[in-house]
Design a protein around this nucleic acid. Sequence first.
RNA 1: GGGCCCGUAGCUCAGCUUGGUAGAGCGGCGGGCUUUUAACCCGUAGGUCCCGGGUUCAAAUCCCGGCGGGCCCGCCA
Length: 507
Amino acid sequence: MFRILILQSSSLTFDLMAERGVALSGEVEYRRRIREELLSKNINPYPHKPIFQPQSLKSILENPVEGAEVALAGRVAGVRRHGGLVFLDIIDDGLRIQASIDKSKTGEIFDFFTRYVDLGDFINVKGVLYRTKRGELTVEVRGLQLLAKSLRAPPVKYGHRLVDPEVRYRKRYLDIMMTPEVRRILEIKFRVLEETRKFMWSKGFIEVETPVIQPIYGGAEARPFKTHVWALGVDWYLRISLELHLKRFIIGGFNKVFEIGKVFRNEDIDAQHNPEFTMMEAYQAYADYNDIMNLTEELISHLAEKVVGKRVVEVPVGEVRERIDLTPPFKRITMYDAFREFAGVDVERLSDEEIRDLLAKNSIQLAGGYDRGRAIVKLFDKLVGRRHLIQPVFVMDYPRSSSPLAKPHRYNPELAERFELFIAGLEIANAYTELNDPVLQAEYFKAEEERRRRGDEEAHPFDWDFVEAMEYGMPPTGGLGVGLDRVSMVLAGVSSIKEVIPFPMMK
RNA sequence: GGGCCCGUAGCUCAGCUUGGUAGAGCGGCGGGCUUUUAACCCGUAGGUCCCGGGUUCAAAUCCCGGCGGGCCCGCCA
């Protein structure tokens, strides 16, 4: 019943491991000996395919028929021996089933299992479904094949959490393997990506792609990653946003485009930030930021419904778990009104002197010199900030000078038509009525360049090529950027962005 | 960048204040056990006490420096 395959030279890998300085604990040595023994008996510990064509565990569990013969494959996650009867847990694709091997019925299989199969090994079994005294659906094993020998024991019992964050994130496969909850949270992230695509497609947006490696970066305020392009002998950058290239699609004549992709910002790593993260940006011709606001709240509530099946979620904010209602319409408030409502400050009427005082009082320093608009945004973060923006809220109408890619407000040239969506204190989305006047755009880039000269490393570099594109004519456009990692945090109810990034950046 | 806390067996942690033979539970291995499911019972192996330096007759323990991690603050979309 076991396939006989080629014997391999086995001392080689052993030497390699020793050379690499890999510690061979007693456990690993023990399992290596089992592997050698199997090879010496012409039993391949790593066959190419299961003998018993495995069904998905999902299909077995969906419609279990007692007495039916089934075959499956999976990892041995638990073993409970009772003399001549052994119960084992097999996990396959995130699901678990129990199997049993009865010595009195299948002595050969029983002996093989107890001799050669350890926790963590992949096996292929066929058998008959029955229910134990306790009523648990179980496969009575009638055929067994070892599919892959594991040389290291699982670090914890299946279902138990790995505690050390260092191990959890660096060896994420173990975290995913051992803890169903970890898998569930990551699946929320992946479903967010999937449902965002479906939603945008259903709205008539075309998914496009734009370059990651660029001679000039832009579309956000951030320090970029630099990378060397060997073929050209130049240093270019990894993108910090998708914005400027997606707008080129609009200029080129695509009316509704979106992209889901990684962007890279050379900044701190903490509970809300990972240097590479996933953005969805969308641009729609003939729309303004009001249309985009409607689209955004529809997207968020759609994701809540499709991904977690509910519109009210619980999210940890500081010490408490907040109940957050994602049912639209979301609250909409202008930034100035938010200042009045949450901080009791009428920022609109403050003189520049008073604003400078407030900056000093809150020990805020502005890179690149004083600018009223930028100062107000900083004060907003400080005075209103996270603690007041728990339920979904669109904060609208930012000071114009803080938003060099947005169109000035139709009723007030001091403001830009821009909004940000906050949920659970997290900045979730950022959107504009896009600037499409190339002369203003050039002017704003120039101001950014000036600010850069004064020492603000995060000011936008002047993108001549983009201005030239706009000079050919760009329709009025609404644009949106959504941080999908943060959306996933809200839906999964977790407080660290690392939870929703499979392999977060580690020092 | 600042403050606080942590680093000891595969995992979770005790021991450190008061310096004197390296500990527990789980896991592993061996044995027992035919309806368990964090199975149970008996036995047993397993250690660069994060690294380096200092004090001391003697350092896991005290001191200094470093590395790694966590939380809070600052910075930051």
